[in-house]
Structures are given as C-alpha cells and as structure tokens.
Design a protein around this nucleic acid. Structure first.
Length: 107
DNA sequence: AGTAAGGCGGGCA
DNA sequence: GTGCCCGCCTTAC
C-alpha cells in the first residue's frame, strides 16, 4: 500500500495501474472493480490527487460516455498521450474499439 | 466532532 | 444533446 494514501485510494490506483499500454478503461469500471460501483467520483478524485502520474496511468481512464474527461495536466495532454499509445480519438471522444478496452476482473 | 464543498462521473428524463 | 440530481470519498472550515 502506497504511503500517504487512504486504503480506498490505494485500491483505486492499484486497479488503474493494471491497465496496459494501448488500452483504456472507464471510471465506472474502476469503481466497480473496487467494489463500489457508485463511487465513480471518488475514482476521479483519487486520480486528481494522484501524485504518481509516472507509475499510475490515470490517463487511460476515460468517461463511460466516451468523452475523454479531465486530467491534471489538461485534456489536451491526455489526448496526446492516448494517441501516442495507439488509441483513436476524434473530436475529443474515444472511438470505441472493443479490443482496446481493458476489463478488470471482478470477484 | 459536525458540516459544507469539491472532484478527471453516471444515470435518467 | 441538454439538464438535473444522485452518490461516494477527502479535505477544508
């Protein structure tokens, strides 16, 4: 468990850390993977305060609507990174490609 | 200790 | 697409 974070935040970030390069997931899925399907905003908050951008790819988490969502360093930066990882984005929206969506395993 | 506000959202009308 | 309310965790008063 990462020092300086609550156990819940740690849980969230750990899930996000599992997302491989070239894949994306949604806040909803992360929340569900943490056992709290309705805590989507908490997921966002955990990312917003995440100071481990280098080891935790919160940029691979987007809105379930397909919108890119927000990012500490700005949406533009998020889009840029995702594109460089092979994710297609058009008009600030993720182009759904089933093979690029990462699914967490739920217990 | 209690309360209000905020944050990279979601669901429904 | 728009608008509004809901829900969940942290932090600030």
């Amino acid at each position: 468990m990462i020092i300086g974070l609550t156990s819940f935040q740690d849980k969230i970030l750990k899930q996000i850390k599992k997302i491989p390069r070239g894949y994306v997931s949604t806040y909803k899925m992360v929340a569900r993977a943490c056992g709290k399907p309705k805590a989507v905003r908490s997921v966002g908050r955990a990312c917003a305060q995440n100071s481990y951008l280098i080891s935790i790819p919160c940029h691979r988490v987007i809105r379930s609507s397909g919108e890119i969502g927000n990012y500490q360093k700005g949406r533009a930066a998020k889009v840029k990174i995702l594109k460089s990882e092979g994710i297609k984005i058009k008009s600030g929206r993720f182009i759904a490609e089933p093979n690029q969506i990462y699914h967490f395993k739920i217990k």
